[in-house]
Structure formats: structure tokens, C-alpha cells
């Protein structure tokens, strides 16, 4: 059942992005930045956690989960360290993704050349 919900949730998020992309003049860069902020807002109301509970991977794959992890890590460490914790724990959960993509991008950029 979780696979069906994964399919539906991830599909709907991508379909919304496609509708915005086609009907406005926004570029994919605008869309990804917008969706990260949407993820943050949904998680600050505790909605995104519930979506993840039912949809699993379907909610973790789209870029909205990046915003979710940012605010989640920040609030989690704020429980221990107070307001400073927001700064300390911001990248706690997303660090793996960001660091991995920086390292992979750097070494692939060294090896491969862009096609014209």
C-alpha cells in the first residue's frame, strides 16, 4: 500500500510543478526554490511528517523533503540548545545529501567536459 501512496504523492507533486512550469514563465530554478520553501512551510505545521508516515519514499524523493529536513534538524537541536540550536542543527539531516552531491559534482566536473 505504501508503494501506491508513494506513486500518488510523488506524481502529484511533479504534476503540480509541471502545471506551474507550463502555465507561467517560471524556470525550473524558480520551481525548485519554491518547492523547498513549500516543504519548509508544510513541515513547520507538522503536515509533512504525516505525509511521510503514509507515503514513505514518495514524500522523501521530491525536493520538498530537502526543506523538511532543514527545519526538522533545526527544531530537533533547538529542543536541546535553545535558539542557538536552530543554527547548530540546520544541516544535521541534509548534510549527507549536500556533501555527497558536492563531492560527486566536483569529481565528475574534473573528469567530464560539458558538451556544446
Amino acid at each position: 500500500m505504501i508503494y501506491l501512496y508513494s506513486f500518488l504523492v510523488c506524481g502529484i507533486i511533479c504534476a503540480i510543478a509541471q502545471i506551474i512550469l507550463d502555465s507561467t514563465k517560471l524556470t525550473p530554478g524558480h520551481i525548485t526554490a519554491l518547492f523547498v520553501v513549500i516543504g519548509v512551510i508544510l513541515d513547520s505545521f507538522g503536515i509533512y511528517d504525516k505525509i511521510i508516515l503514509y507515503a514513505g519514499g514518495g514524500a522523501l524523493v521530491p525536493i520538498t523533503s530537502f526543506g523538511h529536513s532543514l527545519i526538522h534538524g533545526a527544531l530537533h537541536s533547538a529542543e536541546t540548545y535553545g535558539v542557538t540550536g536552530l543554527l547548530l542543527g540546520m544541516f544535521d539531516l541534509t548534510a549527507s545529501g549536500i556533501v555527497c552531491s558536492i563531492i560527486v559534482a566536483f569529481f565528475l566536473g574534473l573528469i567530464f567536459k560539458a558538451k556544446d
Binding site: I12, A17, G57, G58, L60
Partner: peptide
């Protein structure tokens, strides 16, 4: 002119497929 409906359906199915891959990997 880009066909909005076909693009949306394509994105829905490919996005959904990515979601299934994500859950499968987990």
C-alpha cells in the same frame, strides 16, 4: 505550443515512478 495536459500526465507518471523507486530503495 506545448500540450499542457500531456506534459502533466507524463510528469505525473514519471514522478510517481521515481517515488516508487525511492520507496523500493529504502
Amino acid at each position: 505550443k506545448e500540450n499542457v495536459l500531456i506534459n502533466t500526465i507524463k510528469s505525473f507518471f514519471i514522478g510517481g515512478f521515481m517515488g516508487i523507486i525511492g520507496q523500493g530503495l529504502i
